[in-house]
Every structure is written in C-alpha cells, then in structure tokens.
C-alpha cells in the first residue's frame, strides 16, 4: 500500500493536515490526486502558533505545501482487508491473477566488499 494509495483510500475519512508553515487543517477528505493536492470539507483551520481558528466549508490544499497528514488508525486495517479481499478474488478468478511476488533480486548486498 503506497502512501498515495492510502491517501486515496482515505476519501471521506477525517484527517489532520499540517502544512510546512505549521498551519493545520482538520476536515474530511473530499478528493486528492497524485501530486497530493487535496480538497477537504467542514474544515477547522488552526494557525501555526495554535491561537487562532477558522472554520471553512471547503478548502483546497496544494500538495507541495503539505508537511504531513494524520489519518485514522482504522484506515490501515481496512485497507489491508480490502487488499486481501481483492487478492483472494483475483486468485479465484484463475491462475495468473494478481501480481508477481518476486520483489528485489537475489544477492542484493548492502555496502561494498572490502577493496571493491
């Protein structure tokens, strides 16, 4: 589950977004794209020093300004379940379903040998 797929799966879920400048946005995710641009609805915006608040009906955040997002704990589990279901379904669909599982190669050493 790639980070951006997780974000996609978080649609309509509540989340907290912190921007690089420290401002935070609490709201429900409406939509997102591969640049991490997002739209939220029913948003509570908090200033960086945490002493001013705004309520916004909807807001758009450019992905490049984001520091991090916090998503519900349950999201990871539900996404894992969905993945398992999808995998089982594709297995039942016949062999050849699903993706190859050979990640990385053999003898993928770390660092280099002495005197290499």
């Amino acid at each position: 589950m790639l980070p951006l797929s997780l974000l996609n799966a978080a649609q309509n879920k509540p989340m907290l977004v912190e921007l690089k400048n420290g401002e935070t946005f609490n709201g429900h995710l409406v939509n997102c794209d591969n640049f991490m641009n997002i739209t939220l609805r029913e948003v509570y915006q908090t200033s960086a020093d945490g002493d001013r608040f705004w309520k916004l009906k909807e807001c758009y955040i450019r992905g490049s300004t984001i520091k991090y997002l916090r998503v519900p704990d349950a999201l990871l589990d539900s996404v894992k379940e969905d993945q398992n279901r999808a995998r089982d379904a594709s297995r039942r669909g016949g062999p050849g379903g699903g993706r190859g599982s050979s990640r990385g190669g053999p003898s993928r050493g770390r660092g280099r040998g002495r005197g290499a």
Partner: peptide, 11 residues
C-alpha cells in the same frame, strides 16, 4: 501518541 502518519518525503 499520534497514530498513523503520512509524511511528505521532502520534510
């Protein structure tokens, strides 16, 4: 405790 974080790599 913060739970699940999705951190944008450049940070």
């Amino acid at each position: 405790r913060h739970g699940v974080f999705l951190i944008r790599g450049e940070n």
